[in-house]
Design a protein around this nucleic acid. Structure first.
Lengths: 240, 240
DNA sequence: CGATCCTTTGAGAGGTCTCAATTCGCGTGG
DNA sequence: CCACGCGAATTGAGACCTCTCAAAGGATCG
């Protein structure tokens, strides 16, 4: 029940693209969601590793997850951070294409894939919903490619902070105070930067009076307009 | 008809993840595909721009396309190259999230989205097919994030060449001779490098005897094993 | 209150970029 | 058939941004 509601909410949150024939009526999903179970994790617990058999689909109920891929020699690319309401494990074949780890204490809802597949057969609207969610993830991934391939450290960092701010706005929370439960290393691996570069960049933003660090990983964005300029490459007059 | 067949082929080519309840029987798709039309393009012709209303879904019949996104100040990230059999325009909402341009003379098959949406309603298996295709694109996008965020110029370039080689293998073509119709600038914008860096890296591979440039944008991969090592970061003993 | 992990800061090295010039490839027209 | 012209590719030199290595400072938790 909680999950059904939550998926509805999540689809609202991500600004549904409304494509490929959106059903207006709320879908009857009781069958698949009756079989869900809850899983609780501590920070740094692993949900699954890349290559594990993809037995479940997950939904984040509470907490933050990070998804990542590794190179053979141990370098890591964080492909995303997952917040409550987001789905995990849509984009896989028989095994997961990435690893998932809890950043904070986390509560997940698990759905066996086998059962979901049956649900897809009998509830075509559910397939469209998954398609829509996957399409949205793909669009996000393409934005991230633009960031990783073309942007400088300051642009990457500003963009990252603004995304969290927008996420807050969409949730009806304060867009000027964001929560950064992940480490600088996690952020660096997400932005294609090193820990030190992230730290230095954040310090520059702090000195420039654009952000302010608070306790417990909280950060105030005191000049969002300036941050938006920096995110788009307008870094003139931004000396250390 | 040609397109129906082609989509079937394309799904074979990309190693279908076979998830969420793959229907064994070939789907009855006559209805949507009766309404397709053909579009021919010259090199450098634009199929659509980012932000254009997403009126059609496309399938590449012949030729090569590139997809890209732009920053406000004109930097460009090529998010992918599309070869025959691949679909274009799945991952959009009401408007396209990226631009698409012909690299070579190209033939496309166009399907009106409105009609496709109706088809999705009456052919749930089609929705699953689209979901599978989108999921595959997402996995590719995540690989690309790893490349853009973590890999060096030599690793990026070697990975790119190997992908084209694998594509050839999957098509039953010669994996040791690949076709590079795109410019060095296109490749650079795809790999997050400059034109000059791509050129220098290709030259190093050439000098090392790992590749050989031929006429008309063709390239011979004379040492694929070495290329695989380089793609994974084993660049010891690879001095200029 | 010590231990540990994370963050910050510094100095120097290095890979990639920028700017510039030359060479190459290919289509065009004489 | 060859010369021309233009865009693309190559090559060079130097600058710069980010990384690497190192150490100090700070936060959190038992």
């Amino acid at each position: 029940m909680i999950a059904l509601s939550s998926i509805e909410i999540s689809n609202q949150r991500v600004a549904p693209p409304r494509q490929f024939g959106e059903a207006n009526a709320r879908v009857q999903l009781d069958t698949p969601y009756c079989i869900s179970s809850t899983q609780r994790l501590q920070a740094k617990d692993t949900v699954f590793f890349e290559g594990d058999p993809a037995s479940h689909l997950y939904e984040v109920i509470e907490g933050v997850l990070k998804l990542y891929k590794l190179t053979p020699d141990g370098r890591r690319q964080v492909t995303g951070f997952l917040y409550p309401g987001q789905l995990l494990g849509l984009n896989v074949g028989e095994s997961f294409a990435y690893s998932a780890e809890a950043v904070t204490k986390t509560t997940l809802c698990r759905y066996p894939r086998k059962k979901l597949e049956e649900a897809l057969d009998s509830h075509p609207a559910l397939a469209r919903r998954f398609l829509r969610a996957t399409v949205h993830e793909l669009a996000v991934a393409q934005d991230q490619m633009l960031l990783l391939g073309q942007k400088s450290a300051i642009e990457k960092t500003a963009t990252f902070l603004l995304r969290l701010s927008d996420q807050n706005r969409e949730r009806g929370e304060n867009p000027e105070e964001i929560y950064l439960p992940m480490t600088r290393t996690d952020i660096g691996d997400y932005l294609g930067l090193t820990t030190e570069t992230v730290s230095r960049t954040v310090t520059r933003l702090k000195i420039a009076g654009i952000i302010r660090l608070c306790q417990h990983g909280r950060m105030n964005l005191t000049d969002i307009d300036r941050l938006m300029e920096l995110a788009e490459g307008d870094d003139c007059h931004f000396a250390v």
